[in-house]
Write a protein that binds this DNA or RNA. Structure first.
Lengths: 335, 335
DNA sequence: TTGTAGGCGTTATCAC
DNA sequence: GTGATAACGCCTACAA
């Protein structure tokens, strides 16, 4: 059906081995051969069959990136840098987007089987899934943006923000501004991210001798605008005299802002809001969002550096925390 | 190295043929065989080698989606629906994200070579690239969101918004509100999208007996916030008494809004802004953005329906326009 | 219902 | 520097 290197070999007068060598830019080919063969390749618009190629190749030279959630703006904003960085280092970059319901480790195992990458970067991860199946993976991996410390695998490093510290900083900021009736919008607590952030919140309250009643002040929400909106409505219903909110993601904060406004309240005059992540969008909002900015450039950079190091020396996993910054925007004010 | 169906065959006491049949859910296998083989498969955590599989398979049963730009919020918001819809119809869904600099048709040709999909959906496309190379693709394809009419390939359909009409509606709206000093922020005009939208703008002006001086009133910009911001600054410099702006994408409009605010002007009191696309975000902004909403749900739905139809009967390409709606937000007001 | 064997298109390993 | 040939792991006839 399709044209193969065999056809190219016949047409060019060379053997398949030589054609393969040319196609892979091997040095041990004469210029005449290279020229003649490439001519035929172009003439027939030949394309290599990657299935055959990867079937035969023992070890591939590629880095895989597995992203959970094509709608995640934080991840989206990191992809270009990651991809460029990997390619600049001479590796091929295999990108896979999975949705929330798919099993990222299962997928990774299959990728290892099919493409034998040298390492994997995970953007977004479900810890339970990692606990259950990650032992099937034996190449170096890095969790980008989540800590993998508690998972404790020798080949699973991580580069992330200190969630507890960062959340604490957000709530501290609100408390310093004089707020006392503070609500928290966050993820469901089965994951370590929301749990850590909530832990940080609680610490901020207790260190300031303030009560924190989770049932009253905490409202779980998915990390999307619509859920942030609804969660904020519930919080406003439960705590009518609330004056500030910390949302565990900017996107949720955005939904919350609109909910506040739709109740006829103003930001920051009536309610102060702090987000989390520091996605680009927050700087363009007319009421710039005060947010905990994860240093995504540095996280991306270090993730790759660490992955490369592990590929090189196969040393034990490291778990690095990258400093965050609280960016004071216009969505908060002293009470 | 890795475990193969041969190993499974040996362990289970069956032949490789039977193992293959079980793995592919073929009906012509006894329950005992299926059971016994699956037991061994699970015991050894066997995973099929897709390279070998696809190398051998003549025709794959999959639909490919090629997306240009992982940062494009309009595309991101359509992916889930597309993916679910395709999988609900029993097809496998192959997703590839490319960045702006990569050649989507080149990539598609390679995908056809390797995975032999039944059809391809393109989200985002460069017309020049299609002109040059699309003739190498002979399976049904659909351009999702861009018109492919002028490309005139028998196997390239498209489902899109009438760009000229929609842009005209946006500018008409501003004119009806009494605005006369109107600026336009748009893409570089080598692509058909920006060109069509600009054409629509011009028509709106001329039908209302208004002048439109491109050099003065049109400012090109990439479809990202930062460029929208800068382009708006230029427009404000050139036309100090400007009262309204139409931006050819919501993301650009967002940048423009912030630029306006940073000049100490207010939206919509001093400047009205209309966007394009109608991404979810626009509904959550505190100053809800007036925008031309592309009916992305319907575009996604029809794109797949058309692709399926073409796969079935291989009939000639169709180019469908899906009605848009102008959503009046809070970013515009009568002059 | 199950087994056998050939071949998919490439790379790798020999020779020459 | 180049050629011949044996794998790679699976699917698909065809035979039993």
């Amino acid at each position: 059906m399709a044209i193969t290197i065999k056809d190219i070999a016949r047409e060019s007068g060379y053997a398949v081995g030589t054609v393969s060598r040319v196609l892979n830019n091997r040095p041990d080919v004469s210029d005449t051969a290279r020229e003649k063969i490439m001519e035929v390749v172009n003439k027939y618009n030949f394309r290599i069959n990657n299935n055959a190629k990867h079937l035969k190749q023992r070890a591939g030279t590629a880095i895989a990136i597995i992203v959970k959630g094509s709608n995640n703006m934080l991840f989206a904003s990191m992809m270009e840098q990651l991809q460029n960085d990997i390619e600049d280092r001479g590796y091929e970059c295999l990108i896979y987007y999975l949705n929330e319901t798919e099993n990222e480790v299962e997928h990774a195992i299959q990728v290892c089987n099919d493409r034998k990458p040298m390492g994997i970067l995970f953007l977004g991860s479900n810890h339970q899934v990692f606990q259950q199946q990650f032992s099937n993976i034996d190449i170096p991996c890095v969790l980008v943006t989540n800590s993998g410390e508690s998972l404790n695998y020798p080949n699973l490093s991580s580069v992330s923000t200190d969630d507890a510290e960062a959340a604490k900083a957000a709530v501290d900021y609100l408390i310093k501004l004089g707020h006392r009736k503070i609500g928290v919008l966050g993820g469901h607590l089965d994951g370590p991210v929301a749990a850590s952030r909530l832990k940080g919140c609680k610490l901020a309250f207790s260190e300031n001798n303030l009560e924190f009643d989770s049932d009253l002040q905490y409202e779980p929400s998915m990390f999307v605008m619509s859920h942030g909106y609804k969660a904020m409505e519930k919080l406003l219903d439960r705590i009518p005299d609330i004056t500030a909110v910390f949302a565990m993601s900017d996107v949720m904060a955005l939904g919350a802002m609109r909910a506040v406004r739709d109740r006829g309240l103003r930001i920051p005059e009536d309610i102060s809001i702090v987000g989390f992540d520091g996605i680009e969008l927050t700087e363009y909002l007319i009421t710039r969002l005060t947010t905990v900015r994860q240093n995504r450039e540095e996280i991306a950079k270090r993730s790759i550096e660490i992955l490369m190091e592990k590929i090189r020396d196969n040393s034990n996993a490291v778990h690095e925390l990258i400093p965050f910054r609280l960016i004071a925007g216009e969505s908060t004010k002293p009470l």
